[in-house]
Each structure stands twice: as structure tokens, then as C-alpha cells.
Design a protein around this nucleic acid. Structure first.
Lengths: 339, 339
DNA sequence: TTGTAAGCGTTATCAA
DNA sequence: TTGATAACGCTTACAA
């Protein structure tokens, strides 16, 4: 495409190594030649070949991000946060979406074993059961950072929100609003976030002396319509809950759609609180939705900063086995408040 | 990280070139050695170095996607569609988000001049005024595909929806519902989609004999709160519209928020139709929003297919200067229907 | 301060 | 059918 180092050097009647050093601002090169080199490079619009450089230096200046869903403000926001930091440092982002499919996730991770990226940031698929592929990656010394949906057994850095506490508080809020039969909606029992959020829910019920009814703990699929129907079935059953804690945003939307298919009304017959990323949408729903929102952009930024630190400074230690907790915020809206 | 070709060859007591050919299934290699090579490669988990290969072959197996916003179902869906196709062919996606900032867009495009990606798929920033950077790229023979927000002057392949017709029909729908003062909301006058959608709007008014009031044609910024306030000002002014055609989804949400700050009600005092990607959200808004939705995933798939064709088949011609139109669908909901 | 040469891991040409 | 060698474009010892 453009001009390369050799041609640039020929034009300048200098050796490629001198030109390389000049462009990399080496102290061995005189100011005069540096200027000459830089000005011609600019004039000819010289762009170093990234692959030659990567091959030579054994690093790609690229970070891979693996998320379960793209049409999801939560993940989209985190990626925005990561890019905000990494772009400023000249890093590129390979973004992969698994569509919640473990096989796809494994394939992607395997493809990344070859050094195409210098690090991976991942929030795992809801269908994940074993973490062999990620373990292997980590054991080989590959920089790996988790956020949100983590693998707790893998000793590396993780960014999560205070799932337990948020869920505990959210459940408590429902209890305070008079709910006696509180359902818990989740995507998969295996997810780290599910476990933590479930614990918070359970402990809040315990503390209030409410018996946990396992028939009110529902696991959902990737099929939207099917989810809506399941919820509707629950809502018209004898065992109808009067409160719902949804651990995933889209299950709250599914609930709203299910309610529309019944004679019930929120918050009169049913109160609902949900982990939810998009507060504009939450506030415009009818009724507006009480949410638990995580500072996702911040999480992305933190991931980005950590990785830039690790990848750009020489002789960095392994990423610490540490879990950073960035607290969520509960915003009470009409879906849990009796009018 | 893992083993490389030379080591694999040494282990097999073969030359690197033989091993390379065996792995690439060359017809010159005997079945016997092919099997030996492949089995050891699998056993040692050999992964070819992508940079060595890219350097040698002068292609990256990577496609760059540039979008204005990540937290936007429209763009997220298109990227999903692209990935659906390209991933199956072993291509990787570098995804860049400009946050509607032209300078950022230019920087990104310039970074991609060096061959890091084999092609670019882009929907331009709303603030774009000159397309020098994209023109340069195209003139250098770099494969470039536009979708949605295109640069019509650059002779390459574009994927859009039937903006004019959708907008015309949408406006007509408002007129049929009795609207006499119809506003048009946009992000920037420069965008291709704005121009086309505006034309459709204008012609529909003309046809109905309604005078276009330019005070009802509003351009908005990136500042959410400011947008809401502008809309509110309009709504409480003497020149209040009774219908709105919003050319951008988030301006419809801003309108809903603005309405909440007034005594007005949709659809009684104000009817609204909007280009909008997320039909779940549209149906759950209060009142549910009449939308014009584009098959975005399909657009992504088409982009992907075209590029795979171009990049994987030998001796492909330049991408044709052709605009593919994938029609949108109007879904009438409560925001435009008097109860 | 600058130049020479080797090497990163592949693949392709030519020779055996 | 296989092997030796050069080349892709860059950086970095080592020499000058």
C-alpha cells in the first residue's frame, strides 16, 4: 500500500536502521537527521507495517474483548470504557460476541492462543459449565481479565459489582413494600453473578423470616417468546409471586411483556426490581422500573487501565488474583412503589 | 507461547517447508506425512503465528468495523450480522466506536491505512463534513463498505434502507392521523440518512398541501439533557407541533422524557413516529411507540458476505459502486393512534 | 552518530 | 515427494 522503511531510507540516503531509530526517537540519532527523517516520513505518509513489528516484538498492540451479547447496554458500555482507555494508548480492540454460546466462546478463545491479542477481557457465556479453555489460557501465562460474569477459580484480576449486597438490598426493598412471595429470575445457575445475587436474595428472605419457595426461582433460556410465556404461566398460576427480583435486565422486559398478557398490573399485583443497565429505558417503561445499575463504563475503564499498565510497562508481574468490587446503585421507581 | 513451525519440523525430522505444506494440505505432500504432521501438530497444539503469516501473505484476515455508537441496537445488530458471517470464515473483527466524533473517526481511519485490516465497514459520524480521509483510503484501493450513514460521493458498495420511502410513509401516517404541524428531528443536516429522510418528510407534506415550517425542523446534539430541554421548550411554545417524525431513535426517547416534563400527552396532544431499532423497547414504552425498523442484522450479513467474497476469492474486482436498499417496516403502535 | 546483518515465523521458488 | 533458501518489513546487537 504505502511506502516502507527501506524505501524511505533509500530516499533519504540513510540505512533502514537509522531511519527506524530516528522514527522511534532513539537517543543515538542526531536531531538533524531525526528531523529530516520525520519530515519525509510525514510527507510520504509512512506507516509502519504492524505485522512486521508484531512479529519482531512479539506483541500485537491488540486486546481481545469477549462478551455474551452486543445488543446489551451493559456489555456495550463496558467495551466503550475499555476503548476509551486503550485507544488513547494506541491499542486496538478485537471484539467477539459469543451470543451466549459456550462452543463459540471456546472456539474464540482457542483462536486467541496464538498471540493475535496481547490480552483478553471476558465476561463468560451464561451456558458455561467448565472453564478448561480459559484455565489453559491463564496457565500459559496469557493476561486474562474477567468482568461481571467471572470464573472465580482462575487466579487473575476480576471486576465485579457488589452483587450480594445489591441483591440483598433489592430484595429487602421488595419486602419493605409488602411482598411476601418473591421470585428470583436468572439466566443460568452456573453464572457467578447468579450465585452471588441468589445468595443476597436468599439471605434477605431468611432475615425477614420468609420461606424460600424454589418454584419461584426460575431459570430462563435464550428464547424471548418462550421466556415471556413461562413468566405468564407463572403469573396466572396459583403460585403467583407478588414480587420479582430479576438478575438480568432482559428478563425484566420479558416480565413487562408477560404482564401485558394478563389482567395483572405492576406495581399493584406485582412489584419488580431488576439489575438493569439502561436507565433512560428504565425510566420510560410503564410503570418506570426500579433498577440496580452498575457503573459499567467505569468497569471498562478500570479493565483498560490495568491492562495498559501491564502491557506497556516493562517487567510487569502477573495480573494479581484480586477481585475489585465497584458498587451498584439502586434507583427506586414506580415498579415497586404502591401509588 | 506455543510451539512453532521450526520446532514442529525438528520434532518430525522434516523441513519446515514440508511441514508448512502438509498443514496447508498441499497436493505435493504424501498422505502419510500429511497425517504424521497433522497429528503431531494437533498433539502439540500448534498454532500458526498470525503475524508471520500476515507479513508474508500481506493480508490480515481481519475486518475493521467503525460505528458511531456502541450502545445503540441499530449498530450493535449490524455488527452482530457481520460477525455471524465473517467468524464462520475465520475472520476477526476490529471494532471501533467514534462516539460521533469526526476527529476520532479520522484518527481511526488513518491508523487503518497500514494494512492492519483487509477492509473497513463504516457508518460515519454524525458530525462528518468532509470525507477526505475516507476518499484517500478508497483511492488507494482499500476495500471500503458503507452502511446506513454513507458517503454517496465515494464510488463503492453501500447498504442502506429505503429512507425516503419510509420517511414519506411515516409522515403520511401522521397526516392521516390528523397532524397538521409535523416536526422533523435529526442529528445533523449533513448525514446521508438525514437528507433522504428529510426529503421523504418534505414531499409528504407537499403532497398533502401542508406548508413546511422550518422552525419545526430541529437538529440535536450529543447532550441528552440539553436535547430533552430543547424539545420541552418546543412543546410548551406557541409553535407546538402535533406530530413528530424522529429520524433517530434516541430523539424519540428524549421526546418521551420531554413530554413527561409537560402537561401534554401522547398521542392526544402529540403523535410521534420514529426510526427505531429495538422493537421490544418500542412496544413497552408508554404509550408504545410507532416505529420504522430496519433489518439491521440482515444488513450486517450482506456486508459480511460481500467482503468475504471479495477477500477470499482470488482476483476479485473492486467493490462495485452500487447501493443496496433493504426496506424498513413501519409498525404502528399507540404513539400515533388516537384512543 | 550511523551502518551491517541477523532474526522474528511464515510461505513460495527453485533445486534435488 | 521433500529440502534449502529467500523474502515479507521491522528492530536491535554489534561494528565502524
Amino acid at each position: 500500500m504505502g511506502v516502507n522503511l527501506k524505501e524511505l531510507a533509500a530516499e533519504l540516503k540513510l540505512s533502514p536502521s537509522t531511519v527506524s531509530r530516528a522514527l522511534n526517537d532513539s537517543f543515538e540519532i542526531s536531531e538533524a537527521t531525526k528531523q529530516k527523517v520525520i519530515s519525509l516520513a510525514k510527507k510520504l505518509d509512512y506507516q509502519p507495517n504492524p505485522f512486521a513489528r508484531s512479529l519482531r516484538e512479539n506483541k500485537s498492540k491488540t486486546i481481545a474483548v469477549i462478551i455474551p451479547e452486543r445488543i446489551n447496554s451493559y456489555f456495550a458500555n463496558v467495551v466503550d470504557g475499555i476503548e476509551e482507555i486503550t485507544q488513547a494508548h494506541g491499542y486496538h480492540l478485537l471484539v467477539y460476541c459469543t451470543q451466549e454460546d459456550v462452543e463459540r466462546e471456546k472456539k474464540i478463545v482457542n483462536l486467541l492462543m496464538n498471540g493475535r491479542a496481547d490480552a483478553i477481557v471476558i465476561s463468560v457465556s451464561s451456558q458455561l459449565t467448565d472453564n478448561f479453555h480459559l484455565n489453559l489460557l491463564h496457565e500459559r501465562g496469557f493476561p486474562l481479565v474477567f468482568f461481571d460474569r467471572i470464573c472465580s477459580e482462575i487466579p487473575t484480576t476480576k471486576y465485579i459489582t457488589n452483587n450480594y449486597e445489591s441483591s440483598f438490598e433489592g430484595t429487602n426493598h421488595l419486602i419493605q413494600q409488602g411482598c411476601k412471595k418473591i421470585a428470583f429470575f436468572m439466566l443460568s445457575k452456573e453464572l457467578s453473578i447468579t450465585k452471588e445475587r441468589y445468595s443476597g436474595y436468599k439471605d434477605a428472605l431468611d432475615q425477614a423470616g420468609i420461606n424460600l419457595d424454589s418454584k419461584l426461582n426460575l431459570t430462563f433460556s435464550q428464547n424471548e417468546e418462550q421466556n415471556i410465556e413461562s413468566i405468564k404461566e407463572l403469573l396466572i398460576s396459583d403460585n403467583r409471586p407478588d414480587g420479582i427480583l430479576s438478575s438480568i435486565g432482559k428478563l425484566a422486559l420479558a416480565t413487562y411483556q408477560a404482564v401485558k398478557r394478563t389482567n395483572l398490573s405492576i406495581p399493584r399485583d406485582l412489584k419488580i426490581i431488576s439489575f438493569f443497565a439502561d436507565s433512560t429505558v428504565a425510566s420510560l417503561l410503564n410503570p418506570s422500573l426500579t433498577t440496580i445499575t452498575t457503573p459499567t463504563f467505569k468497569i471498562g475503564e478500570e479493565c483498560g487501565k490495568l491492562l495498559i499498565q501491564k502491557l506497556t510497562k516493562p517487567k510487569q508481574p502477573d495480573l494479581p488474583n484480586q477481585t475489585f468490587v465497584i458498587p451498584s446503585k439502586i434507583t427506586i421507581r414506580s415498579s415497586t412503589i404502591e401509588i
